[in-house]
Design a protein around this nucleic acid. Structure first.
Length: 334
DNA sequence: CCTCCACTGGAAGATCGGGAAG
DNA sequence: CTTCCCGATCTTCCAGTGGAGG
């Protein structure tokens, strides 16, 4: 059934990109100065999740690494490294300058200074989920660091630079903007096909079934690939020769709930309680929510802290907030 | 229409845990 | 050992806001 499970991982970057050629070319052009040892243009990739932003960014930098010998690249997921310190640390890691910063008591600006001292070859840094950075000023600090070329990735660009003051924000608005749309059915099928070819035994799944997946994934490649993986795993588990339509119909919702479950797993105990209260009620007002939370835990956190938890869970797409001020209600996500 | 107040989210400072320096 | 500094987490305080309910 399964030949190479790596190909079915969402992080897998294919050798050839058959779509998004315009996006690839635009990003390649923005990074072109790097091939002459210069600093590239800052670029900003934006669009809905599963539309190929991360994949394209990694693909283009991979290509650069193959054609240009003298270059450093690093991928930073700001969702995981959401603080200024963690982001800077990860970037230093990419040029092996973080070795002796295992200690936490380094002077406040040591990390940024080290980065500015860097005088090696061009350094391309991908900042994924950049809208999740809680201290956006680090963007400006990085922008002003010579030798660094930034590739920013975000879901939407609406309020991204709002926390920066106007003068700084306007600099970022001149970045090369690359818009990603949702994949169409045919495109999604074409993305799944090579993964089927390399990842699965021959003949276990046919094109019409890939269309089923593509339809259900509504343009989200991550959901599509995850669904394919779940379907193959299920078929293998049931000892089937082929992936049936029945399996696919169940695989897509299961893939979606697995993606969600991964986010639930990383919540703290208190956050999980808040999450449980919301899912049990389906819809609840802030005061009722905090009241229930208080009853369920020993040593409850403050109301303000629970609001931070809620914000975080909203970002993780685990809960939905509706209404403003007194009309606010928290919903579970179906 | 107006008023009120539940709710949000920024700011500042306290606390905690951990690692380094004295 | 103590002291100091760090990031991370959390609390306290509060200004601003706009929907509920007269």
């Amino acid at each position: 059934m399964i030949q190479d499970a790596r190909v079915l991982q969402p992080e897998f970057v294919p050798r050839d990109i058959v779509h998004r050629t315009h996006e690839v070319n635009t990003l390649t052009a923005a990074l072109d100065p790097v091939t002459d040892g210069q600093q590239g243009e800052t670029s900003l990739l934006y669009g809905p999740s599963g539309s190929g932003k991360t994949c394209i960014a990694r693909y283009v930098t991979e290509q650069l690494r193959e054609t240009v010998l003298d270059i450093n690249t690093q991928y930073v997921n700001c969702w995981e490294d959401y603080s200024r310190f963690k982001t800077l640390y990860r970037i230093l890691e990419g040029v092996d300058r973080s070795l002796d910063i295992h200690r936490q008591s380094t002077p406040r600006d040591e990390l940024l200074e080290r980065l500015r001292e860097y005088d090696g070859p061009p350094y391309v840094v991908i900042l994924d989920e950049v809208d999740q950075l809680e201290d956006k000023t680090v963007l400006y600090e990085l922008y002003r660091t010579s030798g660094l070329t930034l590739v920013l990735i975000a879901n939407q660009t609406e309020n991204l630079f709002e926390p920066l003051n106007n003068r700084l924000a306007s600099r970022f608005r001149t970045a090369t903007r690359i818009n990603f749309d949702r994949y169409g059915i045919d495109e999604l099928v074409a993305i799944l096909e090579p993964r089927v070819r390399w990842g699965l035994d021959e003949g276990v799944i046919q094109t019409p079934q890939l269309e089923l997946i593509a339809n259900a994934a509504v343009g989200d490649a991550r959901v599509g690939i995850e669904s394919l993986r779940v379907a193959a795993r299920r078929a293998k588990h049931e000892g089937l020769e082929k992936i049936t339509d029945e399996i696919i119909r169940n695989a897509v919702p299961e893939a979606e709930s697995e993606i969600k479950q991964r986010n639930v797993d990383i919540l703290t105990e208190h956050q999980k309680v808040v999450y449980e209260v919301i899912t049990e009620h389906g819809e609840i007002t802030p005061s009722d929510l905090y009241e229930s939370y208080r009853e369920r835990v020993d040593d409850p956190k403050s109301n303000r802290m629970v609001r931070n938890y809620l914000k975080k869970m909203e970002n993780y797409n685990l809960v939905r907030a509706e209404g403003h001020n007194r009309g606010r209600k928290y919903h579970s996500v179906s």
